[in-house]
Design a protein around this nucleic acid. Structure first.
Length: 578
DNA sequence: GCCGTTTTCGGCCCGACTGTTTTCAGTCG
């Protein structure tokens, strides 16, 4: 049982207790515990091995949840959870996914109409069995029907890059309206979360500007869910929900803070405010007793009012950033301008779209000092992987290219590399003597993704232990929203990387972002450098580096934690194998 | 169920919008 699996159990317990109408604070405890466990870098399993009582040092975990964690780790099950599941039909929890249907409605629908699944809900709404229920009329019924169909059409979350594009476009639409002063996307987009549930946009404008009318007139809007004076919600044709909030300049900072989230971060900040006799809302920081306005113009003011340093949005997940902000110990985070090169790049020689010259020029235009050209190895025939002979020839081509640059006095270098396949048995797809001739050996798994965790871990550990790898590429193999990470034990991988002097890649491709934020933090804490690489297959892909940098920031990485924040000299030194 | 700069008991973040109500509950973020 890994942390996400344990978190899911607590999430389900919270859902069921809520439907049962249990004490909402008890529900919140389970929900909070799920969040904490989900975001915890070290596996609870290894914590418990160091003593059960260590669990209770984690904020949000008390006696009861500690016991359940121990039980789950020992037996793979939780009796309390199993008991609750037996009380309700299995499809009932799915109903909570329907927008506008919460725990109270689920209970009502089940008790009065016997609805046990989303399908039954849809049929009941179509047969007009819902209107007439307490608190529900014609409109509620239509709303639910629409929400069910919407839920069937789009599934869950959107990719970071998709939402970023929409946000830019929506922003320019809103800015066209006269009298609009500021437009600022916030929410999980501003935190650079790897996937986005909905888009939140904040607007300040002059009085009397019809900003809501203009907001809902965006051509991509397919449905207006809510439209008030200060807040509106629409659904776009692609299924993305967009919320707009209009505010005064005076409360822009507090609103930005509030709508940036995360929820867990905000609850913790507000809780802190409360203990200080203050109250924080999206309108500002107020004295609780007198209601006197204290701050709100900027985020700095808001955090300052509760004795905290300003927290970069990427860190706002309640994973220790508040304690760090209090103690002035927030990490200095990596920035785009720190990146000096890209250590995972393809060209036409294997499955890239651009030539060596084109890739190098694009990298130079970005101000880089180097790239490593890392073509696929022979085993990956589908990607035109290079046979030994072709690789040797490619090495010569790169040597000649570098000589030409040198003659011209250009301070840029192409490193000779490979993305060598890690075979099923953990051996590498080129022999050691060939790998030793390269500047940068990137190793990657490209097959057998559904191997049992034990085998996959053994496979990757074996590859690392050859001591021929410089960098382990996309270490978990996930494709966000499409393919789960393979069942590899990342704690073991990170520890082995430390032992054998291997660096870990943070693949910046927005569908990968692999390592994820949590593993980045673990790598940092273990003392393993991370290489932020784009795996570019054309010149445009090089720009994806921004996604990698922000994911690294979410993982608390600073300049000195990132391999390619070093200049050419530094990187060559680090890539030298003893 | 968790937690403690007032607490080991009694609190627990805060506000907008909607629909079905005549003052509010439910949902959402």
């Amino acid at each position: 049982m890994d942390n996400p699996q344990i978190a899911r159990i607590f999430e389900e317990i919270a859902d069921i207790l809520e439907i049962k109408g249990e004490n909402p604070f008890r529900v919140r405890s389970y929900r909070n515990a799920a969040l904490v466990v989900q975001g915890f870098a070290v596996s609870l399993k290894s914590i418990v091995e160091g003593g059960e009582e260590e669990l209770e040092k984690i904020p949000g975990i008390g006696t009861s949840i500690r016991e359940k964690v121990v039980e789950i780790l020992a037996t793979g099950k939780c009796k309390f959870h199993d008991g609750l599941l037996k009380e309700l039909p299995p499809g009932l929890l799915e109903l909570l996914r329907i927008s506008g249907v919460g725990p109270k409605k689920v209970a009502l629908l089940y008790d009065k109409v016997g609805i046990k699944s989303v399908d039954e809900l849809e049929k009941a709404a179509q047969a007009h069995k819902l209107c007439g229920l307490p608190g529900m009329g014609e409109k509620s019924e239509q709303k639910i029907l629409k929400a069910v169909q919407e839920a069937k059409r789009v599934s869950g979350r959107f990719g970071l890059s998709t939402v970023r594009t929409v946000a830019e476009d929506y922003k320019s639409h809103i800015k066209k309206l006269k009298g609009v002063i500021d437009v600022e996307p916030s929410g999980s987009l501003r935190r650079w979360k790897e996937s986005i549930g909905d888009l939140d946009i904040l607007v300040t404008c002059k009085k009397g500007v019809p900003v809501m009318d203009h907001f809902v007139s965006y051509p991509e809007v397919s449905e207006v869910v809510a439209k008030g004076d200060t807040k509106s919600t629409v659904i776009l044709t692609n299924g993305l929900q967009v919320d707009l909030r209009v505010l005064d300049k005076k409360s822009f900072g507090s609103a930005l803070q509030y709508f940036t989230g995360s929820k867990a971060h905000n609850i913790a900040v507000r809780d802190r405010a409360k203990r200080m006799g203050l109250k924080i809302s999206e309108y500002g920081v107020f004295r609780e007793k007198t209601g006197k306005w204290m701050a709100g113009r900027t985020e700095q003011d808001v955090y300052g009012a509760v004795g905290l340093e300003w927290v970069p949005p990427e860190l706002r997940e309640n994973r220790g950033e508040i304690e760090a902000a209090e103690a002035s110990k927030l990490p200095g985070l990596i920035e785009l301008k720190h990146i000096k090169g890209d250590l995972h790049v393809h060209t036409k020689e294997s499955d890239g779209a651009n030539t060596l010259e084109e890739m190098a020029e694009a990298a130079m235009a970005m101000g880089y000092e180097y790239i490593a050209v890392t073509e696929h190895s022979k085993g990956l025939a589908i990607a035109r992987g290079l046979e030994e002979k072709r690789l040797l020839k490619h090495i010569e081509t790169i040597d000649r290219f570098n000589e030409r640059l040198k003659k011209k006095g250009v301070k840029f270098r192409v490193l000779k590399g490979t993305e060598v396949d890690i075979r099923s048995d953990g051996t590498l797809d080129y022999k050691s003597s060939l790998l030793e001739r390269l500047d940068c050996v990137v190793g990657a798994v490209h097959s057998g993704f559904d191997m049992p965790g034990k085998d996959m871990t053994r496979r990757i550990l074996k590859a690392i232990s050859t001591a021929k790898l410089h960098i382990l590429a996309h270490p978990t193999g996930r494709l966000i929203g499409t393919r789960e990470p393979y069942a590899v034990d990342m704690e073991k991988v990170i520890n082995a990387a430390k032992k054998y002097g291997v660096f870990l890649e943070l693949n910046a491709y927005p569908e990968r972002l692999d390592l994820n934020d949590i593993h980045c933090k673990l790598a940092k804490d273990t003392g393993v450098l991370v290489a932020i690489s784009t795996d570019a297959h054309n010149t445009l892909h090089l720009k994806n580096i921004v996604y990698g940098v922000h994911t690294a920031r979410r993982g608390w990485l600073g300049k000195k934690d990132v391999l390619n924040a070093g200049g050419l000299k530094e990187v060559l030194k680090l890539l030298k194998k003893g």
